[in-house]
Nucleic acid binder design. Structure first.
Length: 547
RNA sequence: GCUCCCUUCGUCUAGUCAGGCCCAGGACGCCAGGUUUUCAUCCUGGUAACAGGGGUUCGAAUCCCCUAGGGAGUACCA
C-alpha cells in the first residue's frame, strides 16, 4: 500500500487543530483587526460563470471568506471558465455583485487583481499546456485519439449489457492512444493536426488515502478511478488540470468546496503526487437540499415552492426568463448571510444572530456538519424579521419611502418613521408594512363585510357622530390625549370600550386590523380622522343598502 | 450498476472525537392558553427525534459490526 498523503507524523486534522489553537491565542489581542495577516492561509472561491450563483454557492463562498478572515488569510476569487461552450454573458458580473451584496469581498480577483493574476482561467490558457506536457513527459499522462462519438458508442454498448464503460487500466490497452500506438504514429497524427486529448494515467493497484477536515480519512482504490481527460482537444485544460495547477500556483492552503467534488478528490490528490507538489488541505461541505423530499436544491425548487434560490434577481440572457432574488424579495443581506451561515455550521452555543464580525470570530470548519441540510424558507423569513426588528425606524422609513414612491405615494420621512415604529414588529419585510398599514396613507375604500356584520350596530352611526364631535375638541392630537379623552367620554356616556372602538376601527381602517387606534389617529391627524369617520358612516350605510 | 459520502423532533441543530451530567437541550414551524378595543406582536405551556438490528460495557445517541434508507459522482461540464 502506498501512502499518498503527506508523510508527517501527525494527520492534517491534528496539525490543523494545533494551528487553530495557536491562532486562537493570538487573535483576541487584535480583535476586529484583520491586519494580522497570515500569509500561509490562502483560500479561493472558484465558480464557473455558467449562470447565476445559487445559495449553495454563496454559502461555499461565505465559508471560505469566514475561514480566511478568521485566520488573517487571503480570500481569492478565480473564475473557472475552461468550458467555452458554457459561457453565459453576465454571469461573472452577477457572481461578483451577488457576493458584494452579501459583504463577501476578495483580496485577489479578476477585478482587484493580485500577485497571481490573471484570475480567469481562460486568460491563463497558455499556462496549462506546459503542465500537461510535464505530466506527459513524466509518463503520468498520455495522448488519446478516441473521438467523442467513438466513446459515446462504447458507453452505449456497455449500457446495453448493463455495464459502465470506463477509460481505465483494462480498456485503455484496446483504445486509440499513445499507450497502444507507436511513438512515430502518435507524432505524425499530432503533426497532422488530428484532434487529441491528454488523459491522466491512473496508477494501478494502489490506494489513495485522503484526509478531509470535515469527513476525516477517506480511502479509495485506484482501480475504481478512470483516466480523466486533463487537456481537451480544443486546447483548454479540463477543470481537474486547471484547478490543481492554479491552486498550486496561487499557493492555496485550504480547498473548501461542495461535497459534489468529493468523488474527484482521489484524482486531485494523485495529480498533486504526479507533479510532486504538496497538496492543500481539503474540506468538503455538505450539500444544501430541497425543502421537501430529497436531493440537491435547485432552481426549480424555488419556482415550485415560491422562494428565491439566488441572492440577486437574474434574467436569463437567452430565454429572458427571470428568477427572483433575495435582495429583490426584500431580504436584508446580513439576515440572508446569517441564515446561510447557520445552514450546515453551528457555533455550539445557543446564539443564532450573528453579524459578519461575529461570524468570523465564531466560525470554524470543525463545527461544520457532515450531513446535507434541507433549506427552510420559513426560518429565513424569521431571520429577516429579527434583523428588521433591530434596524432603526429611520433606516426602515427610508427604504419604505423609496418603496412607496414606486407606488406613487409621497410621504414625509418623519411620518414614515412613526408608521414603521407602529408596524415593524408585525412584518418580516419592509414591503409588508404597506400591506399591513395601507390605511396610514389612504382612507379605506371598502369596509370588511364580516366586521360590519359583527361590529356595526344600529346605534353605531349616532355614537360615531357623537365621538367625532368630541374628538373635534381634542386640541393636542397625540396618542395620550386622544386616549384620555376617549376614556372620559366613554365613562360619561356609559359606552362600552369594545363596542365603540371596534366600530371606530372599522371607520378608520376598514378592517379589523392594525395598531392601537389612538396611535393611528395621531399619525393620520385630526382632520383626516374626522373625515374618515364622517365618510365611513355614509359609505357603510350605502354598502348595506346595496347588499 | 459501480465508487464515495451521510443518517438525532416536520425543519435547522446541540450532544458523538475524550460512553454516565441526556427517559436527549435550543431554534423555526405547528397547537393551546394568557395579555389586548381588532389583527399581529409579546408571554406561558405543549407537540415531536437518537433509522433498524446485533454486539462491547456495570452503563451506549455516543464505540464496533451488519442491514436499511438517502445523497453525490460516474462527460473532451464545472
Amino acid at each position: 500500500m502506498i501512502q499518498y498523503e503527506s508523510q508527517t507524523l501527525f494527520p492534517p486534522k491534528v496539525l490543523f487543530a494545533f494551528f487553530c489553537s495557536i491562532n486562537a491565542l493570538i487573535v483576541p489581542l487584535h480583535r476586529n483587526n484583520h491586519s494580522l495577516m497570515n500569509p500561509k492561509i490562502r483560500v479561493r472561491f472558484a465558480p464557473s460563470p455558467t449562470g447565476p450563483l445559487h445559495i449553495g454557492g454563496v454559502r461555499t463562498a461565505l465559508y471560505n471568506f469566514l475561514f480566511a478572515r478568521k485566520h488573517g488569510g487571503t480570500m481569492i476569487l478565480r473564475i473557472e471558465d475552461t468550458d467555452q461552450g458554457r459561457f453565459v454573458p453576465g454571469a461573472e458580473e452577477y457572481i461578483i455583485s451577488s457576493l458584494a451584496w452579501c459583504g463577501i469581498h476578495f483580496d485577489e480577483s479578476i477585478s482587484v487583481g493580485g500577485p497571481h493574476a490573471p484570475y480567469r482561467q481562460s486568460d491563463r490558457k497558455p499556462l496549462y499546456k506546459q503542465y500537461s506536457d510535464l505530466l506527459l513527459n513524466a509518463g503520468h499522462a498520455y495522448y488519446a485519439f478516441d473521438t467523442p462519438e467513438e466513446l459515446e458508442m462504447l458507453r452505449k454498448e456497455a449500457e446495453e449489457s448493463k455495464q459502465t464503460f470506463t477509460y481505465n487500466a483494462v480498456t485503455r490497452k484496446k483504445l486509440r492512444n499513445s499507450l497502444t500506438m507507436n511513438p512515430q504514429e502518435v507524432e505524425k497524427m499530432i503533426g497532422e493536426g488530428i484532434p487529441f486529448v491528454v488523459r491522466f494515467l491512473i496508477p494501478e493497484n494502489t490506494e489513495v488515502v485522503m484526509e478531509d477536515i470535515i469527513r476525516g480519512k477517506v480511502v479509495v482504490k485506484t482501480e475504481t478511478l478512470d483516466d480523466k481527460v486533463l487537456y481537451k482537444s480544443d486546447g483548454m485544460p479540463t477543470y481537474h488540470l486547471a484547478n490543481i495547477v492554479d491552486d498550486h500556483l496561487m499557493e492555496i492552503s485550504h480547498v473548501i468546496r461542495g461535497e459534489e467534488w468529493l468523488p474527484s478528490l482521489p484524482l486531485h490528490i494523485l495529480l498533486y503526487q504526479a507533479f510532486g507538489w504538496e497538496a492543500p488541505q481539503f474540506a468538503h461541505l455538505p450539500l444544501l437540499l430541497k425543502p421537501d423530499g430529497n436531493g440537491k436544491l435547485s432552481k426549480r425548487d424555488g419556482d415550485r415552492l415560491g422562494f428565491p434560490v439566488f441572492p440577486l434577481q437574474w434574467v436569463d440572457p437567452k430565454t429572458g426568463e427571470t428568477s427572483s432574488g433575495y435582495r429583490e424579495s426584500g431580504y436584508f443581506p446580513d439576515a440572508f448571510v446569517n441564515m446561510l451561515a447557520l445552514l450546515g455550521w453551528n457555533p455550539g452555543t445557543e446564539q443564532e444572530l450573528f453579524n459578519m464580525e461575529e461570524l468570523i470570530t465564531a466560525f470554524s470548519l470543525e463545527r461544520v456538519g457532515k450531513a446535507g441540510s434541507k433549506f427552510d424558507p420559513e426560518k429565513t423569513k424569521w431571520f429577516n424579521h429579527q434583523y428588521l426588528l433591530r434596524k432603526s425606524d429611520e433606516e426602515l422609513a427610508l427604504s419604505l419611502k423609496t418603496l412607496l414612491a414606486d407606488k406613487g405615494i409621497e410621504a414625509e420621512l418623519k411620518q414614515l418613521t412613526k408608521v414603521v415604529a407602529l408596524l415593524k414588529d408585525r412584518v418580516n419585510f419592509v414591503h409588508e408594512i404597506w400591506n399591513e398599514g395601507q390605511f396610514f396613507f389612504e382612507a379605506p375604500l371598502t369596509y370588511d363585510e364580516q366586521v360590519i356584520k359583527k361590529r356595526w350596530k344600529d346605534d353605531s352611526p349616532a355614537i360615531m357622530q357623537s365621538l367625532a364631535l368630541m374628538l373635534q375638541d381634542v386640541h393636542d392630537f397625540n396618542p395620550e390625549s386622544i386616549d384620555a379623552a376617549i376614556k372620559q367620554w366613554l365613562e360619561v356616556n356609559g359606552f362600552g370600550m369594545g363596542a365603540v372602538m371596534n366600530a371606530l376601527r372599522l371607520l378608520l381602517v376598514g378592517a379589523a386590523k392594525g395598531p392601537h387606534l389612538a396611535d393611528i389617529m395621531s399619525v393620520i391627524g385630526k382632520e383626516e380622522s374626522l373625515r374618515r369617520i364622517k365618510n365611513g358612516i355614509e359609505a357603510i350605510n350605502n354598502q348595506q343598502i346595496n347588499s
